[in-house]
Simulated assay, not measured.
Amino acid sequence: MARTRTIDRTAMLEAAQRVVARDGATRLTLDAVAAEAGISKASVLYDYKTKQALIKAVIEHLSAAEVARLHAFIEKEGDKPNAAILGLIAAAESDETAFHRNVALDLAVALNQHNDLRCAIQESIGSFIEAIQASSTYPRRGTVAFLAVEGLKLIESFGLYEWPPGERARILEDIRALLRPETPNEMQDLAL
Rank of each mutant, 00 (worst) to 15 (best):
E14Q: 10
S135C: 10
V20E: 00
V44R: 00
I171Q: 09
V58A: 03
R27P: 02
A90F: 06
D8I: 13
K80G: 15
K80F: 07
G24I: 11
A35G: 05
R22L: 11
I129N: 01
G38E: 05
A11H: 07
Y138M: 02
L190H: 08
F128M: 08
T4I: 13
R69L: 02
I155G: 13
D116Y: 08
S157M: 13
G87Q: 03
E66I: 06
I59V: 15
F128Q: 05
T6D: 03
I132S: 00
A131P: 01
D31I: 13
D47Q: 14
D8R: 14
A11M: 08
A72R: 09
N115R: 14
N102Y: 09
L28F: 09
H61S: 12
E150G: 10
P139G: 09
R69N: 00
D31N: 12
E14K: 11
A110T: 00
A35H: 11
A131W: 01
A104P: 01
A64I: 02
F73L: 07
L154P: 02
H100D: 12
L107N: 01
T97W: 13
E186Y: 10
A37V: 04
V144L: 14
T137W: 03
A131V: 02
I175G: 08
E186R: 12
A64M: 01
V19K: 02
A120Q: 06
H71R: 15
P139W: 10
L160N: 02
A2P: 13
E182H: 14
D23P: 09
A42G: 13
A134D: 00
V33M: 11
L192R: 15
H71L: 15
D23F: 12
L178R: 00
D116Q: 10
I129W: 03
E186G: 09
S43Y: 12
A15I: 08
A16D: 04
E60T: 05
G126W: 05
Q188V: 14
K80I: 13
S43T: 11
S136N: 06
V33C: 10
A42Y: 10
L147V: 06
V20A: 05
S135R: 09
E130D: 12
Q17V: 11
A134R: 07
N112K: 15
I7V: 15
R9G: 10
V103D: 02
M1Y: 02
V67Y: 06
G38P: 04
A177L: 09
K56L: 07
H71Q: 15
P184N: 09
A68S: 15
L88I: 06
I132M: 01
R69W: 01
D174G: 06
V44D: 00
L111V: 08
G166H: 11
A37M: 04
L192H: 14
L117S: 04
I125C: 02
L45I: 09
R118Q: 15
N185F: 15
